[in-house]
């Protein structure tokens, strides 16, 4: 995954150094891939930053759960570990019985390093690949997005419907407001979803509360 991101970032015109720094400092798989694919479509930095803000707002919810659960921590340890939360480490940690800050930071730090390592490999091997292969790498991010969405679509008709509605809104908005459509239809879609989708299908938070 890190490699796919790197392929896209280089294609969008980032230098290898920028590509790796982005992974270190932002560390949000979907957010980074979204950012470079928007960059590829000539979006402005402002549009990209705002979209990232919205997409990554979920970490607010995740960290609320994490720091409510975590034990043997302190303000300083909390602050030092805040950056390295991500969907995978959050999911793992919320399902575990163990709740020490050391366990949590261990999981998170490992996945952070492997994400950075993926980007480094990506920018290193990319020069060696033929054009058709790098072209085909463009699909990797969409393949990833689709693969993440499908399990939820399978689980709930309401989410399927929400996905369809959001897609249609985005197609229409794209004609009207170009690259701002992504952030706008994301927010409109989620607002619709609040009323459309049954509570039980959303919220990783509820699993956390019952755990």
């Amino acid at each position: 995954m890190g490699i796919g991101y790197a392929a896209l970032a280089i294609k969008a015109g980032l230098t290898p150094l920028q590509t790796v720094l982005f992974s270190i400092f932002v560390y949000a798989g979907a957010g980074e891939i979204i950012a470079v694919s928007m960059l590829l479509n000539n979006a402005t930095a402002l549009a990209i930053i705002l979209t990232n803000f919205v997409v990554n707002l979920r970490y607010l919810v995740m960290n609320i759960c994490v720091y409510n659960k975590v034990t043997k921590s302190s303000l300083l340890k909390n602050i030092l570990t805040a950056h390295i939360v991500t969907d995978e480490s959050f999911a793992l940690f919320s399902l575990m019985e163990e709740s020490s800050i050391w366990t949590y930071s261990g999981i998170s730090f490992t996945s952070w390093l492997s994400w950075i390592f993926g980007a480094v490999i990506g920018v290193t091997v990319l020069d060696l690949l033929p054009v058709i292969v790098t072209n085909s790498f463009n699909i990797s991010l969409y393949a990833l997005f689709v693969a993440i969405l499908i399990p939820s679509i399978k689980k709930s008709r309401q989410i399927t419907l929400l996905v369809a509605i959001t897609g249609i809104i985005n197609i229409i908005l794209q004609l009207l407001i170009g690259n701002w459509s992504i952030i706008t239809s994301t927010i409109i879609g989620a607002l619709i979803g609040v009323y459309l989708v049954d509570d039980k299908y959303v919220s990783n938070v509820e699993e956390e509360e019952t755990a």
Partner: peptide, 26 residues
Amino acid sequence: KTEKFLNLLPYTALTALIVPGVLTVD
């Protein structure tokens, strides 16, 4: 409601990225 809204954002963001962007891969 706010919590639900925040949790739905990744789904709708992914959708907005796939449709119609996937048609411009090539």
